[in-house]
Nucleic acid binder design. Structure first.
Lengths: 222, 222
DNA sequence: GGTTGTGAACAAATTCACAGCG
DNA sequence: CGCTGTGAATTTGTTCACAACC
């Protein structure tokens, strides 16, 4: 398939996984990788890797595999990682501070441009090297970092309001950590991460496993 | 459908969303809710709500809707939230401390039982009200909190090792924040949360949106 | 020989549409 | 009449299996 037909969502969600694996493989000195190897590293199966890569129109070499450096290049380009994207965090509370302090963002190419907070007492302070700005400063901050990503780390009660402000400031990518459903106009992408939700899902399966274990106490031949 | 056939994964992932919405609705004094309303609150569509609820075998009343309290009860039961589950965090670094400090876990019924860390200098210290334990203390800590959930907040390089230790200690639910694919024996559920991955996915769509915007500069009638 | 790229088969998830019931 | 519950239709995602190619 030749590059520009829309890439399935499920595939998009796996691209960063492949990229991460490829970077690791490159670090180990591999110059070439088969779909089988890449699948192993990314924790998926080989046909999936081949299908996914085929959506990017990337070319491997039959009988050989994919060129690691070339794939990294292609994939970074697809993911828009050539261009740096800053992150603006809304909410200087627990989670906001944690995220500002979290190296994972900066390390992987998403520097934190600032934190905005409604609490005047916090404005002007530094939180692990990141300045806290007033809500009124958001438009200016966003302008200074074109293509930046807004991160919602406020209580759920104000999440929608924050998203609206982000959108007004011209931000079109939002990562929402608040446990609340938010809406945004078309053209704005919102992704939701709810930490407690993940725990609840685990709890569901834990219940099933434990319940399941009750009956087959001593199964013959297992 | 009558309760015990396996609930589809996609449905399981939405149950906490419904529960959250139901709690909000109950808080507003609603005693009854239609699939349409619940769908609105949870940000999905009504048929999905009905299908999902039907997997739980929950009964609504035709012409009326669902009883809010009853649904909350049923859903909490399904999610195993009657029983409290503690969380044990591995890694007292940036992210680990942030998570320990994050009220979102405790507030929603997942108290943090402790942090384990390989660094002897940190052992015995308190991190926002949570004690740091040595790795050797893990089995005991896990025993003291049956059905607990292990959270990996270490560097990727040791994530697999940590998961192995969790499993040895009898933990069968793991939430992995390290950007690395980990494997675990059958019967152990692992969920992956990669914060930078979310940003990369946003970056992908941002690129598409921006590229798309290049051409229709001034669209008539929009 | 080995590995990709991809149609075709299969499976999962979503949406439609309406019968059934309060 | 209004709303649920669910089969059927559709869409999306995964896996298979193999021809094409290096």
């Amino acid at each position: 398939m030749s590059a520009r037909g829309s890439v399935p969502e499920a595939t998009v969600a796996r691209l960063p996984l492949y990229l991460r694996s490829l970077l690791a493989l490159a670090g180990e000195g591999n110059t070439t990788v088969s779909s089988e190897q890449l699948a192993g590293a990314a924790g998926v199966n080989a046909s999936k890797v081949r299908k996914d890569l085929s959506y990017l129109g990337s070319y491997g070499t039959r009988g050989v595999g994919y060129d690691v450096e070339y794939l990294i290049f292609e994939m970074s380009r697809e993911l828009g990682l050539a261009r740096e994207r800053s992150v603006i965090i809304a909410g200087a509370g627990n989670l906001g501070q944690a995220l500002a302090n979290y190296n994972g963002f900066t390390d992987r190419g998403f520097p934190v441009a600032g934190i905005i907070d409604a609490d005047e007492a916090k404005v002007g302070k530094m939180v692990s090297g990141v300045r806290v700005y007033a809500v009124a400063d958001l438009p200016q901050l966003a302008d200074g970092h074109p293509g930046c990503i807004g991160v919602v780390a406020t209580p759920a009660s104000v999440a929608q309001e924050v998203v609206d402000r982000f959108v007004e400031a011209g931000i079109s990518s939002v990562l929402n950590f608040a446990p609340s459903v938010v809406s945004a106009p078309k053209g704005v992408t919102v992704r939701q991460v709810d930490l407690a939700l993940e725990l609840q899902v685990l709890s569901f399966y834990a219940g099933r496993n434990e319940a399941g274990r009750k009956i087959p106490r001593r199964v013959i031949g297992n």
